[in-house]
């Protein structure tokens, strides 16, 4: 499968009154056509900032993307999104890359009908008439599972439940048949039963639209059921990246182990309690000089305090940023 998005060495900082927040410290990953890539990691690890940086959605100031490239390939041509003019980038946003955000209560304009909010994306990107946009919007509403789409077109966000609002946001994201959907914790704010419905909706859309999905989440349970590959972020860096099966079966990073340990398992006895990772997240005000996880790592040795570990390739689709070989129980060579 072809790579549709290649991000290299992305660095984003926030210049705040308290100091410089090193939110993203050299992130490299790729996304392939039609695949679902999950990004996991604790709060503040830079998941959202990474995605926002790629599409110029970082509030500037205080934020600034200081380094990196994001090569987006669509219809045979490649562009570095970080080098595009604002106008060119606007054509990509909402047109070729759609967004779904966490909290559907606040992500829709409270005083505009949901129909208008969807159709304004259509008229913006597809240069179609208002009438045609309206017809398409009604179809989109039906596609994301909103009953009575004709009537619902004229409704306002407050007339919808949280799950239904998230469906509207998804309709906006898929309106212009994008190649990528970035979903930033799309189910976190929803009830458990509704979460399952939204995941199911994404699964169906992925089939019918053949769209690549970047799914940011804290929920490793959802990851197992939905994603092809997983990216584990820690302290503004990629700790580990692997296919879902590889990651669950042979985690290579102590942080990933911790995360998986923190996952309650249905198939194991109660004796294996829910483990939470000891220690606190890294202080992003301190520039990175060594492994950001060293503080909390049971396996850390001298080198971990001296260098930032690069990504080491374990197998063709499995990379880890760690100097310690968990399987052998000793530091890696080289």
């Amino acid at each position: 499968m072809n790579t549709i998005l290649q991000v290299n060495d992305l660095v984003t900082k926030f210049y705040t009154v308290d100091g410089v927040i090193n939110a993203v410290n050299g992130v490299t990953f790729e996304l392939r056509e039609g695949e679902t890539l999950a990004i996991v990691g604790e709060s503040g690890s830079g998941k959202s900032v990474t995605m926002m940086s790629i599409l110029g959605l970082i509030p500037t100031p205080p934020g600034k993307v200081e380094n990196g490239e994001a090569i987006f390939t669509s219809f045979g041509s490649s562009h570095d999104l970080l080098q595009l003019t604002p106008a060119e980038l606007r054509n990509v946003r909402g047109g070729q890359i759609g967004f779904v955000f966490q909290d559907p209560i606040s992500t829709l304009n409270p005083i505009m009908t949901i129909g208008e909010q969807i159709s304004e994306t259509l008229t913006r990107h597809l240069r179609i008439s208002g009438e045609e946009a309206r017809e398409r919007t009604v179809k989109l509403l039906a596609q994301v599972g909103i009953p009575d789409p004709e009537l619902r077109y004229k409704n306002y966000p407050f007339q919808f439940s949280g799950g239904m609002r998230q469906r509207v946001v998804i309709a906006i994201a898929i309106a212009c048949t994008p190649q990528i959907i970035i979903a930033d914790e799309p189910t976190t704010a929803l009830d458990v039963t509704v979460q399952a419905q939204i995941v199911e909706l994404f699964r169906n859309l992925r089939e019918s639209l053949n769209v690549a999905i970047i799914w940011i989440t804290h929920d490793l349970g959802v990851v197992a059921g939905l994603a092809d590959r997983v990216l584990v972020m820690y302290g503004g860096r990629i700790a580990e990246t692997a296919s879902v099966d590889d990651l669950y079966e042979r985690p290579q990073h102590p942080y990933t182990m911790g995360l998986l340990g923190a996952l309650p398992r249905m198939d194991e006895s109660d004796s294996k309690r829910l483990v939470s990772i000891k220690g606190t997240p890294p202080d992003l005000l301190i520039p990175l000089r060594h492994c950001p996880f060293a503080w909390r790592c049971d396996y850390a040795f001298d080198r971990c305090w001296e260098e930032v570990p690069p990504q080491i390739e374990i197998s063709s689709h499995h990379k880890v940023s760690c100097f310690y070989d968990l399987e052998k129980g000793e530091p890696r060579d080289g």
Binding site: L55, L57, R90, N91, V92, R93, G94, G95, G98, F99, F101, T107, L108, N109, E120, T121, R124, H125, V169, I172
Partner: peptide, 9 residues
């Protein structure tokens, strides 16, 4: 932010 993410001017 949603409005920006839609690519609106």
């Amino acid at each position: 932010r949603t409005a920006y993410s839609k690519g609106l001017e």
